[in-house]
Design a protein around this nucleic acid. Structure first.
Length: 961
RNA sequence: GCGGAUGUGGCGGAAUUGGCAGACGCGCUAGACUCAGGAUCUAGUGUCCGAUAAGGACGUGGAGGUUCGAAUCCUCUCAUCCGCACCA
């Protein structure tokens, strides 16, 4: 008995590939001019201590099939793998155990590498990289310096940054510190005092994107907002181009939409409201001046919250998408963090406003957005002049207005904005309708009376000269009229914020930035990049990585010989923040192309030859973060001439999540008696209880305790007890995690690969079914027996394998299989390609004579899917060269043709008979055969055929009466 | 609340894009072989009526519609999942 034994076969072929460098990337330059390059990329994993989970091989198998398929078709393939190895878990582990994060990270990388090799992926392992390699993060730091030395130029109007920043004479005159501040106001990487998401438990600040529901995405710890001086990346300057670039990408529409919404472009107008004179404390120093000094205007020249306008009158600037509703603006609201708030508030209102603002600052984002979101706010005591109608309207402070969006202040139009309406109702502010709802609108009377809100478009009313005009018209006319008076201008706004780029962690890339210090060690406010020849800035030796709950980074605890640097007689203190985990993954796809280059980021010729990435596969969880950040960096590198294409990833595919096996759950009461799902309802606290409020406990049942009844499942032992059936996300706590090591041990790597591809479409979310792995293993067993004589004691080719021509049917099946597998592999419809190969194997298993040539062709088709088995059978059939080097077969249309095809005959659309006709029969010929058919005659009976429809090669339909 | 996606047998899923619904696999049933089986082979397997036949009816979340013909197109509706969530 010589059985198919993957555990013996697979490691053998893996060593063979490694020894023979079967999958080393070919040299593109020496390949022929007609050679097609194909860059097939996986999202590289974070090497966690748990090892691979079955979700990883899903995407990796898909790209491996694509890569092997492309090679067989003569394309030049780059298919690399690496590790995104900086990150919180390794540092958390280091804090717990005292082991250096590098040690654990290396151990995890080794384990991941073992697992990836065990699955037989055809990566070019010569190019493997980890973001934690000094030779790698040297260039991450280098790119940061590119961002640091690239400037946004508001005047240039090119939408692109510039490499040299002209410094205005009046700034130069103010001295070095002024120049520094001016530069920071223009850098793509700049220091700023920002309200940041501070997570005390993690001891770091987090990007907006890393905060979910007011809690940290990692660990779910509370996050609160504090002001802190932080590194920011000016991604907002790329908002427009990040948006435009999406149009031409072959990405899932859902992901494009997510990015589109994340950037959140809106158009409208900025409108300036002068405050009523004499009322505000315009002599008090405002927060705006305190925060920015004389450079506040430069810093905020594109987004001024407020300013002192003509004749010393304070002015409040708002952003609105509905300038047409200006006549309905009955009050204004500023956010509690608004820079002009101290000037707005009158003396008698100050205690109340201060108290409100302080309370708001203590609220986390979660509290501010949670619950029923009842609006709150206080009156500042000031009034502003509505520029549309000259009326005086009150200015309020409320935390439903966000400091970070627009100008941090709004004009409130309660009649046409639901939030303003809620606030106006709560505080009894006037509601004036200025847009007429359609005549048939249910609530039209209430809306016109100011008793309801209408947020859609319509014709203007109560709007002076604009009455009767449509929304779009009023927007344009009113904005341009106010623009002439200098009171408004068209404006574009984005939800996207600048990217908070520093972290107070140890296990990340140090910033290559030096802060100048004077003789006493005090900062002078001047900083510089680390000179190129001193990169990388490596991490210092540290005994203690623990976060201490204060926002000083762990690197600040390093010794002075790391911390203090002297260049050209000046002393500097190193920047002690580190970069976020996203940094390394922003550009790794470039490094694979030229991984050993110590002279530059990437060789320009190689870059032009291999970029962009042709196929990028990974999970949808990176839809906005990684994929937006790396597009941003790539565009900066493009603008600075370091890469040749404006977008890095031409085609993106998201593999769907793999859930755990379907579970049957029911409930039992305190006595252990089963309770039907219908009778276990949720109480006010969300706990499951019986009808009479006794607590119940959730229990899981095994498949054999359950049976189908009606449209649900019930307990076999008591069919009155209804159960839930559902698949859940794999998680350690639920205990439904499937470990690839175990699957490979029990079924083999080829079976795991094939099963994951056979489960369903790559993009779909689907539950794991272990029996399904057995199913595909059965298929591979049958393929083995197609060729190997299993009954024999020696390994030998089965007697059924013969050197003869295929019969007509075998030839047709073979060529159908070639066509289907070729088309479906190209379309990444792997599950249907596998189904077709199963049909092939089923057919040829039944054949007593199996032509060797057909089997060999079949093995080449199956090889990308189950490479170990195919290599083995290929060699058993007597070949000495790897099957991976065989050219992809081509199907022959002639072989597909059948001499006669079966055609359904419908009568009034119902299938009544089948006829056999030649495949090239015309519609008329088919109809002739059909109406002569006995069954058809019987079915028609004595009724009249009133219409005959024939579709050549498809069907015949007769309409009878 | 807004946005997106998806609804097909007991289960995962096919269906050449308007033309034989249920490919392929799991599971299940029966038979063969077997000391045994998570082995192999063969046959069957959408539901209902019918006798276990012949035959028939129904059937792609639901209700309408377009069409000779609808899982596929249109309208309404329900359910589930996933994003976003005071962005003015």
């Amino acid at each position: 008995m010589v059985r198919y034994n993957p555990n013996e076969i697979e490691p053998r072929w893996q060593s063979y590939w490694e020894e023979h460098q079967t999958f080393a990337t070919p040299d593109l330059a020496s390949a022929g001019a007609n050679t097609v390059k194909r860059y097939v990329l996986d999202m590289f994993p974070y090497p966690s201590g748990d090892g691979l989970h079955v979700g990883h091989p899903e995407g990796y198998t898909a790209t491996d099939i694509v890569a092997r398929f492309a090679r067989a078709r003569g394309e030049c393939v780059l298919h690399p793998m690496g590790f995104d190895a900086f990150g919180l878990p390794a540092e958390e582990h280091a804090i717990r155990t005292g082991e250096h994060p590098r040690v654990q990270t290396q151990r995890n990388i080794d384990n991941f590498t073992r697992q990836l090799k065990m699955l037989g992926f055809s990566y070019d392992w010569n190019r493997v990289l980890a973001t934690t390699d000094e030779g790698y993060y040297r260039w991450t730091q280098w790119i940061f310096l590119v961002l640091y030395d690239t400037w946004f130029d508001a005047q240039a109007q090119t939408g692109r940054p510039i490499a040299e920043l002209p410094i205005p004479a009046e700034v130069t005159a103010e001295g070095e510190r002024a120049v520094e501040l001016y530069r920071d106001s223009r850098r793509l990487a700049y220091l700023d005092d920002a309200l940041v998401n501070w997570c005390a438990a993690l001891g770091t600040v987090l990007a907006n994107e890393e905060v979910v529901d007011g809690k940290s995405e990692v660990g779910g710890h509370p996050v609160k907002r504090i002001p802190l001086r932080q590194w920011m990346l000016r991604i907002t300057d790329y908002a427009e181009r990040l948006l435009d670039g999406l149009a031409d990408l072959d990405w899932p529409t859902g992901i494009k939409k997510l990015q589109y919404d994340w950037i959140g472009r809106s158009t409208g107008a900025e409108v300036d409201f002068y405050l009523r004179p004499g009322e505000t404390s315009s002599n008090a120093a405002g927060d705006a001046d305190a925060a920015g000094g004389p450079f506040v205007a430069w810093k905020r020249d594109r987004q001024t919250s407020g300013f002192t306008g003509e004749a010393g009158r304070d002015c409040l600037r708002v952003y609105t998408t509905r300038p047409d509703t200006l006549f309905g603006a009955t009050y204004m609201v500023v956010s509690p963090e608004h820079p002009l708030i101290n000037r707005l508030v009158t003396a008698e209102r100050k205690p109340e406003v201060d108290a409100y603002c302080e309370k708001a600052s203590f609220k986390s984002d979660r509290e501010r957005t949670d619950g029923d979101r009842a609006k709150s706010g206080v009156f500042t005591g000031s009034h502003a002049i509505n520029p549309a109608n000259g009326l005086s309207i009150p200015v309020w402070v409320a935390d439903y207005v966000l400091a970070g969006y627009g100008t941090g202040a709004i004009m409130a139009v309660p009649a046409h904005d639901i939030r303003d309406f809620e606030f106006a109702i709560a505080y009894d502010l006037p509601v004036i309708a200025v847009v007429d709802p359609p005549a048939d609108h249910e609530q039209r009377d209430e809306i016109l009376a100011g008793k309801a809100c209408f947020a859609a478009e319509g014709n203007a009313i109560n709007s002076g000269e604009y009455n009767g005009l449509a929304t779009a018209q009023v927007k344009a006319d009113l904005t341009s009229k106010l623009a002439q008076q200098g009171l408004a201008r068209e404006a574009v706004n984005y939800k996207l914020r600048d990217w908070l780029f520093s972290r107070q962690r140890f296990w990340g890339e140090p910033f290559p930035i030096l802060h100048e210090i004077d003789a006493e060690g005090n900062p002078t406010g001047i900083k510089r990049g680390v000179p190129d020849n001193q990169l990388p800035v490596t991490l210092p030796q540290l005994e203690d990585f623990k976060p201490h709950g204060r926002p000083e980074p762990p690197l600040a605890k390093a010794d002075d010989d790391w911390l203090i640097v002297e260049i050209d007689g000046k002393r500097y203190r190193r920047e002690t923040n580190t970069m976020p985990q996203w940094a390394g993954s922003c550009w790794y796809y470039l490094r694979y192309i030229d991984p050993q280059n110590t002279e530059r980021l990437i060789d320009p010729e190689l870059e032009r030859a291999w970029m962009p990435v042709d196929l990028y596969v990974g999970g949808a969880e990176h839809a906005v973060l990684h994929l937006l950040y790396s597009r941003f960096w790539h565009k900066v590198l493009f603008d600075r001439g370091h890469v040749s294409c404006p977008e890095p990833f031409t085609k993106l595919v998201n593999q769907g999540m793999i859930l755990g096996e379907v579970e049957f759950t029911g409930y039992v009461d305190e006595s252990g008696k089963p309770v039907s799902v219908k009778n276990a309802r949720k109480d006010a606290e969300g706990n499951r209880v019986t009808k009479d409020n006794r607590p119940v406990e959730s229990v899981r049942y095994a498949e054999d305790q359950v049976e189908k009844q009606g449209d649900g499942f019930v307990l076999t032992s008591d069919p009155t007890i209804k159960l839930d059936s559902r698949a859940f996300k794999m998680s350690k706590t639920r205990g439904n995690v499937v470990n690839p090591d175990g699957v490979v041990r029990d079924y083999g790597a080829d079976s795991l690969r094939l099963y994951e591809m056979f489960m369903g479409p790559l993009e779909a979310t689907k539950p794991w079914v272990m029996n399904g792995v057995g199913g595909v293993r059965g298929f591979l067993d049958r393929v083995w027996r197609l060729i190997v004589d299993e009954k024999s004691d020696e390994l030998c080719v089965s007697d059924a394998v013969v050197d003869m021509e295929c019969d007509e049917e075998q030839l047709r099946v073979l060529h159908q299989t070639i066509r289907k597998v070729t088309d479906d592999t190209q379309a990444m419809s792997f599950n249907t390609a596998i189904a077709k190969m199963m049909e092939f194997s089923n057919h040829f298993t039944r054949c007593e004579k199996r032509p060797r040539a057909a089997l060999e062709t079949f093995l080449i088709l199956l090889n990308p899917y189950a490479p170990h088995l195919c290599e083995e059978l290929w060699s058993i059939l007597g070949h000495t060269e790897s099957i991976a080097l065989q050219p992809w077969p081509v199907w022959d249309e002639a072989a597909l043709a059948e001499s006669s095809i079966e055609i359904p005959v419908q009568i009034n659309g119902k299938l009544k008979a089948k006829i056999h006709v030649s495949p090239d029969a015309t519609a008329d010929q088919m109809i002739c055969v059909a109406i002569a058919d006995e069954q058809v005659i019987a079915a028609v009976g004595d009724k009249q055929i009133v219409k005959k429809i024939g579709v050549p090669g498809r069907m015949v339909n007769l309409v009878v009466k």
